[in-house]
Design a protein around this nucleic acid. Structure first.
Lengths: 201, 201, 201, 201
DNA sequence: GATGAATGAGTGTTCATTCAT
DNA sequence: TATGAATGAACACTCATTCAT
């Protein structure tokens, strides 16, 4: 990894723990093992580091949603995702992914500092997840697996549960394997309840 | 309000928006309209301001939970709370209350900065609400309003919904009347769904 | 002891350890168990405390030298002072006396800070002791105990030894009983050598 | 001289006059004609400046004692040092040397402020001089110039005289040429007395 | 690509002092 | 006598940034 990338990853790592302001150029330079003034060869200023991180994140998310949309819209794919696939692709590539998880933490703790951060937080922690998750249930109703009313109800319930679990286990303290496992268990057991409801309703 | 209290409220107000580190003693003094050095007549140092805020909050919460516990445990009170009562007492005195709401925001954005803040965040955003909310549903089952299994299921669902709504509408951007209303509507409509489930189940 | 005196003694105690500047009004007030602003009822300002201490010391020394001069000039008193008398009166009331010892330390560490302190240091650590000590030997020569030349020589040697011992044992680290004893032993053994010289010379 | 050295010398110069605490970083920066913040490029903090000065001094003293020991132990050198040599090498390179003289003043006025300074003061103002000076007289007795008993007696007397003269003339007020001359005269005349004693004894 | 040296603005904090009560 | 409340000036120190090399 070249110096520029190292600066980005090190910065995000520290921003997500201590916030933008509390991380100094000294800290960043120290963690990358270069001198402070060398930072300015790679980035215009501190804000430029933050902007680059955000840009990188948005591009990353664009790639991820493209993949997800393709998967969800693929009409052949009429059977629900297996738990393993969910864990690997949906959870593993987003919620558990170190880069994304750190960005979520960063957006959460910086949301009140600027309008820009506020809107990123709103979009990536609530709007987009809600759209994607409820969208998946509507797709199931279009595929005849559940009724349209169930889709609406289950979609909202799923989003509530996922959001709560995310804040409670993935954006709270250090991200440990234990927390990831608890998150998966609770998510899957909730899924089972929904499935029960679908069969009974 | 005396100077000491003004310092506490002004500090929390700014801490909740910009975080502890980004708020300077100069800022606090300016907002209270005294000089920086005067702050140190009332508080040992900046950390002491924070400690005093946390102490005040914990005492406030102790008072609130005492009231809530008394209400929930009151055996005469076998009928469920009206929406108005819920809005006034439960939401209004905690989730919407400016002091409590600011503290929640503050704990959220400072949770990674210290173990102390981390445990406060865990306790007051997740543990205590879960205990109180699921407790209320168990009380209903003991009063024969719902079954024990329903109590367990509804309690969890309610907590998930409330947590999601709290993060989405009450700890996200400025706390406006509009957001409070949206929060209430969604909470009450969720309640209606639960009630429907209770009658049908 | 009234508050004013307490302030003086507490101040000197701390001044002698940490120097005038390093001792704050807060420190003094704290050690006397009053509030800072109360200091200003008793003294115009911090400098006034120092001035009062110096005045007290000069009056104290005036009293001491009067006594000493009377003793030395008393023509009846033709026999040399006993070691015990020397220890009690000369060492005990000046070099070992807590007030005087602290003042000597204070003058030593503050001598470069002001011309006033410089001249006090010069007078009370060198000039006056030299005058008194060599004076005592001249008195012995006038009393025929030693020759005039011996008086000159012994006086200087005695002053050198006493000055060295004072700086080495009484104005160096904490003033312990052990150091006082070492000081006495070395002073007396030097006295014995002088006596030997007087008899042989 | 580079900035770092300038800071060290300027700092010691002021420390020796006003004491460590009374000299501000502002003062040091001003005397070196750089800005306060630039100090921190060269030194971690104010204490680091002091530590560097002490280290420099201890290394300097190590070099000096090596030279002195070699000279004193040189068995060929059976004739006593000439006054000129003494003045140039012993006095000139240590007692009169601006760096060493300032350090002695600094240790004297800071001795009560920290255990570190206390032990430096004890070592460099008393222990080491006593060892070196009495050592020189023992060397003379081993070379048959004086008796062993004389060595003991003269060594102590010489050390007392030198110590007194040092405190009285070299660590008292400004170090002027006049004081240096007085110091030399008194030291040499004392030496003459000792020589007389050696020949007569 | 990277660094040594420097800086203005700002940080939390301590200081001696004042003054009304 | 003593204090509560306040303050301007100073303190040691950190910050993001610049620029010549």
């Amino acid at each position: 990894m070249d110096t520029k990338q190292k600066i980005l990853y090190s910065s995000l790592d520290m921003f997500a723990k201590r916030g933008y302001n509390a991380v100094s150029i000294r800290d960043i330079a120290g963690s990358v093992k270069i001198k402070e003034s060398s930072i300015y060869y790679h980035f215009k200023n501190k804000q430029d580091i933050l902007d680059s991180i955000v840009k990188k994140y948005e591009e990353h998310i664009d790639g991820l949603t493209d993949v997800l949309n393709t998967a969800v819209n693929d009409t052949d794919n009429s059977k629900p995702l297996s738990f393993d696939a969910m864990k690997t692709y949906f959870f593993g590539q987003y919620l558990f992914d170190p880069f994304c998880n750190k960005m979520m933490r960063f957006m959460m703790i910086e949301q009140f500092n600027s309008g820009k951060m506020q809107s990123l937080y709103e979009r990536y922690l609530f709007e987009l997840p809600e759209k994607l998750q409820t969208g998946a249930f509507f797709m199931m109703s279009r595929n005849g697996i559940i009724s349209e009313q169930q889709a609406r109800q289950f979609g909202q319930a799923f989003f509530s549960e996922m959001t709560m679990l995310t804040f409670r286990y993935l954006l709270n303290g250090e991200l440990t394997e234990e927390k990831k496992n608890t998150f998966c268990e609770k998510a899957f057991s909730f899924f089972d309840i929904l499935k029960g409801g679908a069969e009974n309703g």
